[in-house]
Amino acid sequence: MSEVAAAGAQVEEPARPVRIVLAKVGLDGHDRGVKVVARALRDAGFEIIYTGLRQTPQMVVEAALQEDAQVIGLSLHSGAHMTLFPAVVEELRRRRAEDIVVFGGGIVPEDDIVELKKQGVAEIFTPGAPLQSIIDWLRNRFPAR
């Protein structure tokens, strides 16, 4: 197919946008970070499904499945990341949806990041991470088709 035709086809069949479930897991209500990230990702062309505060791992995974999301982004500032992030990965496994990519953000010490990656969390962004680094990371994982 010629390039022109490919462009034409795109008009009729919009490429599948990357759908991302953004969730606050755990009990804390600090949503400044997740909201800023939500806006930045929207402006970068992603489709964000924001689930709000105090989500359990089961709720997050269920939302991702129902929404046909390719990515789950978790935000947490209470220090419970070593319990809750792996619990989301485990729940995905249980639901046979390991292909859904999980990333997280929050106050996570370096040693914990290493351990979380071992357990299947794809990436962790800590406070001060430029928004562009999150966008670039996602675009890299999901190149436009």
């Binding site: 359990t56 419970a80 070593m82």
Partner: peptide
């Protein structure tokens, strides 16, 4: 149940 992982952290 939802206290798991949160106790004594903050």
């Amino acid at each position: 149940p939802t206290s798991r992982g949160e106790i004594g952290h903050c």
